[in-house]
């Protein structure tokens, strides 16, 4: 119960800065960790397996895959940060509790953590984006419009991850989340193959996975397919992000401030 002062304010960025400073000490390892997997998929599936696959929707497979891998790498990076890393800071290092003993509120601690996780994921996304551009897979200037969409994706999954953490009794909980939720989403959100190749029921189901709209929009922008068909998925992603951002904060405060 908070009666007086507004619990969310500028001090969010102090928490964000704390995480940035810590990250800057270990950034090389951290970047290798979050880039390793998408790059391997890109090379292994895109180039390797991709050379046996005919063009999809009129474009070479690797070009089809690249934008989706940017979106999903951001999802993974953001998810990892607000689950395993945030849980460690909360439960083991007691970082949240010690910051909340200062004029920073617990709401700001959680919001700062989510924003940091999103920022870190965007760094991964940016490196991927530059790599993809370098390899010559950007054919439309609209691809740059994918950047804010990727940022939104990062914020969305950072917020969902934090929500999961608010329920987590231990680290095992995250294994379930990654194996039963994120991994299937990585495979069935239209990342590796078009949704249209799945049975209609599964296609409908896939649209309810939070990664699907992001992959769709990012890929469309990369190919310069801009139009009203992007509006629904975009709006859905924004609404979902806002919901989970505030829901995660609420849940975490409820868990911690007792």
């Amino acid at each position: 119960m908070r009666l007086g002062e507004s619990p969310l304010g500028r001090r969010v960025f102090k928490v964000w800065l704390r995480d940035l400073i810590v990250w800057s000490k270990y950034w090389h390892g951290s970047l290798v960790g979050s880039l390793g997997e998408p790059v391997l998929y890109f090379l292994g599936i895109g180039y390797g397996l991709g050379s046996f696959i005919p063009a999809i929707e009129g474009i070479p497979y690797i070009q089809y895959l690249a934008p989706a891998l940017i979106a999903s790498s951001v999802m993974n990076s953001a998810s990892f940060e607000t689950t395993f890393s945030s849980f460690t800071r909360m439960e083991i290092q007691k970082t949240y509790q010690s910051i909340a003993a200062t004029p920073v509120s617990m709401e700001e601690v959680i919001a700062g953590e989510i924003l940091w996780a999103a920022t870190k994921a965007c760094l991964t996304g940016t490196v991927m984006f530059i790599a993809v551009a370098f390899l010559g897979f950007i054919h439309s200037p609209w691809a740059f419009a994918a950047i804010p969409v990727v940022m939104m994706t990062a914020l969305l999954f950072a917020s969902i991850g934090m929500t999961v953490t608010s329920y987590a009794p231990d680290y095992d909980f995250f294994t379930y989340y990654f194996t039963l939720f994120l991994e299937p989403m990585f495979l069935f959100s239209g990342t590796f193959f078009p949704l249209s190749s799945m049975p209609p029921l599964l296609q409908t189901f896939a649209w309810f996975l939070p990664l699907t709209p992001s992959v769709y929009v990012v890929r469309s922008l990369f190919q310069g397919h801009v139009g009203f068909h992007l509006l629904g998925p975009l709006l859905g992603t924004i609404v979902l992000t806002l919901f989970f951002f505030f829901f995660a904060i609420r849940r975490m405060v409820k868990r911690l401030v007792v």
């Binding site: 908070r2 007086g4 002062e5 704390r18 810590v22 290092q93 007691k94 970082t95 509790q97 010690s98 003993a101 200062t102 004029p103 509120s105």
Partner: peptide
């Protein structure tokens, strides 16, 4: 809470150093 916390120092029981 903020204006009170601004004037308090807290040394909690557990090791909460970063």
């Amino acid at each position: 809470p903020r204006s009170i916390k601004q004037r308090i120092g807290v040394a909690p029981q557990e090791d909460s150093l970063d």
